[in-house]
Amino acid sequence: MTKQNDAREVTREVRDEIERFLFREARLIDSEQEREWLQTMVDPEIKYQVFSRQLRYRKDTRGSGDKEVYFFDDNYADLAHRVELRETGMQWVADPPNRLRRIVGNIEGFEGERAGEYRVYSNCMVTRNRMVYEQMSYAYGRDDILRRGADGKLRLLQRVIDFEERFVRGKNLLFIL
């Protein structure tokens, strides 16, 4: 992930707006309101990606094959499928309900490449509690693009997560990151 160290930071006002966006998003996802999240906060042209890098030596540039595997490579319809699964009432893994709780921090906002777009970095810590005995934690950085729609509201246009835990001890990432 190339950080835009010299990119233009957003105004204080926009920065507040971005922060409110990310906090609201966190609350909706963590309280099983993904449908509301999808409808009000996600741009229909969303690109939502989470990938894992194979560990190679720094000096090794010659190795063959892909270097990443994509856990998520979702568009709007794919995300909608994930949301729909629980709504069927037959997704046994979510019943009894999983409980998610996340902290979003280290938020930075920059003017995006196109007008009305913002490049937003944030860090996330998520704890997932489920099935009486299970507790799992995940930490990752997000590289987002938010876009202002015709209605003046921000929406998530792109999220790319370079997931750092190569061997996922928390079993799976079956939640919105």
Binding site: S52, Q54, G65, D66, K67, E68, V69, F71, R166, F167, V168, R169, G170, K171, N172
Partner: peptide, 11 residues
């Protein structure tokens, strides 16, 4: 095969 593999823990 398309690599690299995903790697995860199952109990």
């Amino acid at each position: 095969l398309i690599g690299p593999p995903s790697r995860s823990m199952l109990y």
